[in-house]
Design a binder for these strands. Structure first.
Length: 220
DNA sequence: ATTTGATCATGT
DNA sequence: ACATGATCAAAT
């Protein structure tokens, strides 16, 4: 699938996918559908990336570098409520002295997002899950402010060696949670006395209450 | 070992 | 019922 050259082209392709099931799309692209996503958690996201012509793969780049667009699938229930928090990016745990919000990965990744809702209740077989209507989002000033506030608070805790005090509840819209192969994985971090230590890798996630607001803004 | 794509599953 | 903490696979 060739990468879209313009935003309009991307949105047209996205609209063309609405209403199809994952099974139908997988068949068109020649993919087998897993029975469940337990051992294939990123399957739907990667299928949609391919369908829309994303190029980045696992590189630390936006999905559509030329357009500056990040693609995020958003699993929802039949009432349009998000089923999961949304992973944004890994959290840097060292070498983060006085980084500015505007320069952060979180800010850059969320500057322009193509949200693609997916009716994905666990009771629905993977193959029958329905692709929804994608919509483009840029944080408004209020959203930007909430994100920046949470980010600054979390990054300060990390920089001051407070990473082990941080749990998922520590933010209004943005949270820090483990992002690792398992709970024994380790990466470099800053200890309580400012010394180098090893800690569980973390990532930034958007809370479901936040993404639900985005859906409400887009669809009422 | 890290970042991408996330969802699973247990505790509250 | 829900969020937090835990986990899985592919690409690099």
């Amino acid at each position: 699938m060739k990468t879209p050259q313009t935003l309009d082209e991307l949105m047209q392709r996205c609209r063309a996918l609405a209403g199809f099931t994952l099974g139908q799309l997988a068949a068109e692209l020649g993919h087998a559908v897993p029975v469940h996503l337990k051992q294939d958690k990123g399957w739907a996201g990667q299928l949609l990336e391919q369908a829309l012509g994303a190029t980045a793969g696992s590189k630390a780049e936006p999905d559509f570098p030329e357009l500056g667009v990040e693609l995020k699938t958003l699993p929802i229930d039949q009432h349009g409520k998000p089923l999961e928090s949304t992973y944004v990016c890994v959290a840097p745990l060292t070498g983060i002295n006085q980084q500015l919000w505007q320069d952060s990965w979180v800010c850059q990744k969320l500057s322009l997002v193509l949200w693609l809702p997916l009716l994905a209740e666990r009771s629905i077989p993977v193959s029958d899950r329905v692709i929804g209507t994608g919509f483009l989002w840029q944080p408004d000033s209020k959203e930007q402010q909430l994100l920046q506030q949470d980010w600054e608070e979390l990054m300060e805790l990390i920089a001051l060696g407070g990473i082990d005090q941080i749990r998922g509840a520590h933010g209004q819209v943005l949270q820090l949670r483990p992002k690792a192969a398992n709970s024994r994985a380790l990466t470099a971090a800053i200890g309580e006395a400012g010394q180098p230590v090893q800690a569980l890798p973390r990532g930034f996630y958007l809370k479901t209450s936040f993404t639900q607001q985005l859906l409400r803004k887009a669809f009422g």
